[in-house]
Each structure stands twice: as C-alpha cells, then as structure tokens.
Amino acid sequence: MSLDHAIDILLLAFMAVIALAVVRLRDLFGVAMLFSVFSLLSAGVFTIMDAADVAFTEAAVGAGISTILMLATLTRTAREEKPNVSRNPALPLIVVSITGAMLVFGTSDIPRFGDPQAPVHQHVAPRYIEDSPSEIGIPNMVTSVLASYRGYDTLGETTVIFTAGVAVMALLGMRRTRRRNGQRKDTD
C-alpha cells in the first residue's frame, strides 16, 4: 500500500466522521463550519486522486463561497435547529440502511480502485489522452476536453450558472448602493 493510498484512506475517514458530526449537531453555525472543513478535506482527496483542476475548484467553491452563502442565510434565519418531536427517527434510518446495503451489494463486483483495465478507461478517454496533444495542441487535457471536445456541455453549464444567478436575483432582489442608512431603516 502506497503513501498516496494511506493518505486517501485517512482523509476519507475524516470526512465520514465529519458527516456523522453534521447529523448530530443542532447548532447550524457549527454545521456550516464543519461543512467548510468537509469541502477542504474533499479537495485534499481530489489532489491525491490526480484531479488537480477539480481540487482547485472545490477548495475555492466549497470552503469559500458556499460557506459564506450558508452563513449569510443563517444570519437571516434561525441559528439553532429545533428538535423535531413529530418525526419517527427509526423509519429514515431503516430506509437509508436498506438503500445503502443495496448500493454496497451493487459495488461488490465493480473493478477495484485504480484498475487500469476498468471499462471506464477503455472507451473515450484513451482517444482524449492520445490525440488531444496533436489535435488541440495544448498540454492540459482537462482544459481541451472541457472547452473543445465537450464545448456544448460547458456552454450549457455556463448558461445554468447564469440562470441560477438570475433566479437568485429574482428571489432576493438587489439593494441599491447607498440606501441602507436611508429610508429603509424605519421599517425594521
């Protein structure tokens, strides 16, 4: 077992522990902070698994922007989660256990982690790896697949981000630049 693999196991174990802590915690501020740590750990896992581009994005998005958005939501809503009395805690646990058991059963015969002979590596990917340096002429294969081979995809994703921005502005509106100390104050 290589050092990479050991770090991978350790980081994923940390993430599992944090996930359980998120379930237990009632303080939502703490949940947001734990989530930031969770994202940072997953960025570490992505680095270990050779996905530098993804790790970059996850570190900036997960540990940065989404934590801030969650904290901003908490300042406008409640900081504490109320204990729920009406819900039966056993039923979701049973549903989740059965689903999880079926998924574990489903993964039992998939190729082992890192297997070079796995079906994923046989089809489209070899062409990207072998031909993209000569066809596209840039070294970073992730960029060439993202922007050129799968340009339609990325156009769609960019449109989704734009649309989400429009939706948030439609829901929350946008305050004018200098109005906070003005007429709005007396309505509070």
Partner: peptide
C-alpha cells in the same frame, strides 16, 4: 452577484 444578493438583503 450571489454574494451581493445574500448579504445585501435587509434582516428578514
């Protein structure tokens, strides 16, 4: 813009 929209909004 998301950040502006979330933090610029007055207390609910």
């Amino acid at each position: 813009l998301l950040y502006y929209a979330f933090t610029g909004r007055e207390q609910g």
